[in-house]
């Protein structure tokens, strides 16, 4: 049984293909890490799954329903998927609590009182209870990104997409965000992460996929990818990562 299935996905920008026939299946509760150099198509793949980009060929299925069909209701699809961005993208004119409650109340029809109650529970669970009334610009980067994760979580998504969520953070703040993701995994959340944190990918992933110039060159368990990569390009990528001390 698969939750998400991507078949032969192509995406072009200005006549140049960023994704070149990607196939990927994700099972419920599976954690998939996408690794690869900048520009390899990791972010684009996630944006396609969330229908923030229109695809140029192939198809994506969520719960066996084709979401890339022009007939699919994009808003309804996005309600089932949570996405977290590299630059947090919190709404600066709203408090933390309002950021979290906006989508449950406006898009999902949850009564305001219950949405706030659930938001406060999530904030408490992730150590941010005292920040409910604060505006995003008063928070550290790590706190903002944790709020962004909670905001996505508050809509009770079937699948979470995390797009390089620690890349904008300084090393001291990375750990607190990774801690939240670890907890999501323990809760059984299905996730696809685009990440440059190889150590973390190795620890948390069930499956690691290596994207290279829009092609999914190699996929396997973290153990296999990081200790005995089969593809020559994977080996080259991992050796540059090791050289820059990211692994």
């Amino acid at each position: 049984m698969t939750l998400l299935r991507i078949e032969n996905l192509w995406k072009d920008y200005h006549g140049h293909s960023v994704l070149r026939g990607v196939d990927l299946a994700v099972a419920p509760h599976e954690v998939v890490c996408l690794i690869g150099a900048s520009g390899s198509g990791k972010s684009t793949l996630l944006r396609c799954v969330n229908l923030l980009e229109t695809v140029d060929d192939g198809a994506i299925f969520l719960d066996e329903e084709e979401i890339t069909s022009p007939r699919a209701d994009a808003d309804a699809v996005r309600k089932r998927i949570g996405m977290v961005f590299q630059s947090y993208n919190l709404f600066p004119h709203m408090t933390v609590l309002d950021n979290i409650c906006l989508a449950p109340v406006k898009a999902h029809g949850v009564p305001r009182g219950r949405a706030e109650e659930e938001a406060r529970e999530l904030l408490t669970r992730f150590g941010l209870a005292d920040k409910a009334g604060a505006y995003p610009d008063r928070l550290s980067g790590g706190q903002q990104q944790r709020v962004a994760i909670i905001r996505a979580l508050a809509t009770r998504p079937r699948l979470m997409l995390l797009d390089e969520v620690t890349s904008a953070l300084d090393p001291a703040l990375v750990a607190e965000v990774l801690g939240v993701i670890r907890e999501l995994r323990e809760g059984g959340m299905t996730m696809i992460l685009a990440t440059h944190e190889m150590g973390f990918a190795r620890e948390i992933a069930d499956t690691v996929c290596f994207l290279d110039e829009g092609v999914l060159r190699e996929r396997g368990t973290p153990e296999q990818i990081f200790t005995e990569p089969r593809h020559e390009r994977t080996r080259a990528f991992l050796s540059t990562v090791i050289a820059s001390r990211r692994l």
Partner: peptide
């Protein structure tokens, strides 16, 4: 901002 709002299902 728009991407974040749309991705939340708005």
């Amino acid at each position: 901002q728009r991407a974040a709002a749309r991705s939340l299902g708005l």
